[in-house]
Measured scan of single mutants.
Amino acid sequence: MEVRTIKVFTTVDNINLHTQVVDMSMTYGQQFGPTYLDGADVTKIKPHNSHEGKTFYVLPNDDTLRVEAFEYYHTTDPSFLGRYMSALNHTKKWKYPQVNGLTSIKWADNNCYLATALLTLQQIELKFNPPALQDAYYRARAGEAANFCALILAYCNKTVGELGDVRETMSYLFQHANLDSCKRVLNVVCKTCGQQQTTLKGVEAVMYMGTLSYEQFKKGVQIPCTCGKQATKYLVQQESPFVMMSAPPAQYELKHGTFTCASEYTGNYQCGHYKHITSKETLYCIDGALLTKSSEYKGPITDVFYKENSYTTTIK
């Protein structure tokens, strides 16, 4: 009895394709271990004539594949690729409408935090270190965002349907971005203890939790000093293409032309909904596939993004 075979390709990165001759009487799992086709788990399936010449994702289970996976995804987590594939199996079914010149995501599976993050990423200057993220990001900007969303979920250790947080998501993504040249110098002034300067680099240099107003941050924000008295913390120097200011959701007025974009969060910790506000020729609110415009805006804002380049204080 002759062994019926077909020729397929296996890959971990969709760049390096490895030619395989597979036995049609055995499952993919018996031949390769966990195997995925377009995100779908085909591990328990036997090869079919229609699979001839198709590319299958496999887990990096030998040295060659491990090197290829690390170079593309910059992670050695053995569960990463499987999590990416199972997320992709959902995100490829989502709709990605162009809204006001940006790629958004039609609401499904509690994905409003991903839509808000995706919209924000198209408006701030950011370059990702893992080629996987950078490639998928370019495709997302062009309207094909399924891979990018699935990668975000995998890097953030999230599953489809789980509630997510924009600030946490951005923080994970910033860790995989090139923020080497970003720098922030802060000064804390206390009447009792004097003053202390701190220099922050990388992710810490672009994120701040405690106030939404970048102007206020430049002037000074009140913080408790270690001595128990009130101290003032203010920005001395900022070198970065953008800054992200966050605070627990509270009524906040966004003035046209003073910011790049913002995240609105309605609801409580267990259950809520994100919308995205962007400042173009007027203010726009993007909620999944829905767009509304207004000249002014007041609502429960939790993150505001500002364009920056270089700032030095005039406070002496």
Score class of each variant (00 low, 15 high):
62 D>G: 09
49 N>F: 13
74 H>D: 05
235 L>G: 01
121 L>Y: 03
111 N>Q: 02
3 V>E: 15
149 C>F: 03
240 S>E: 00
45 I>E: 14
167 R>Y: 00
153 L>Q: 02
141 R>H: 09
213 S>Q: 03
45 I>G: 13
311 Y>E: 11
229 K>R: 14
273 H>C: 03
128 F>W: 13
244 M>T: 00
271 C>W: 13
80 F>D: 03
247 A>F: 01
128 F>N: 01
39 G>V: 08
277 I>L: 07
209 M>F: 15
260 T>N: 07
217 F>Q: 01
181 S>W: 10
68 E>W: 09
225 C>Y: 00
301 I>E: 00
55 T>K: 10
27 T>A: 12
181 S>G: 12
190 C>F: 03
278 T>I: 11
163 L>V: 13
165 D>W: 01
98 Q>Y: 10
95 K>W: 08
247 A>M: 07
138 Y>M: 15
16 N>G: 07
314 T>R: 15
162 E>C: 02
80 F>I: 04
34 P>H: 10
62 D>C: 14
176 H>S: 05
33 G>F: 04
133 L>S: 03
237 Q>W: 08
264 E>K: 01
222 Q>P: 13
87 A>Q: 07
201 K>V: 12
256 H>I: 15
214 Y>A: 01
282 T>L: 11
259 F>P: 03
262 A>V: 00
224 P>Y: 13
144 E>N: 13
123 Q>V: 06
92 K>S: 10
239 E>C: 11
39 G>H: 09
169 T>G: 02
130 P>A: 11
143 G>I: 03
89 N>I: 14
308 E>D: 08
194 G>W: 02
41 D>H: 09
186 L>D: 07
93 K>P: 05
37 L>H: 13
194 G>R: 02
26 M>N: 12
124 I>A: 03
253 E>P: 07
72 Y>D: 06
13 D>C: 05
23 D>P: 10
147 N>R: 09
56 F>I: 09
227 C>L: 00
237 Q>C: 12
231 A>N: 01
245 M>F: 15
108 A>K: 07
4 R>S: 13
149 C>K: 01
223 I>P: 00
273 H>L: 02
70 F>M: 14
203 V>E: 06
126 L>G: 03
298 K>R: 12
8 V>W: 04
229 K>T: 10
163 L>I: 00
210 G>F: 03
31 Q>D: 06
189 V>E: 14
274 Y>M: 02
316 K>Y: 15
145 A>I: 02
170 M>E: 00
288 G>W: 02
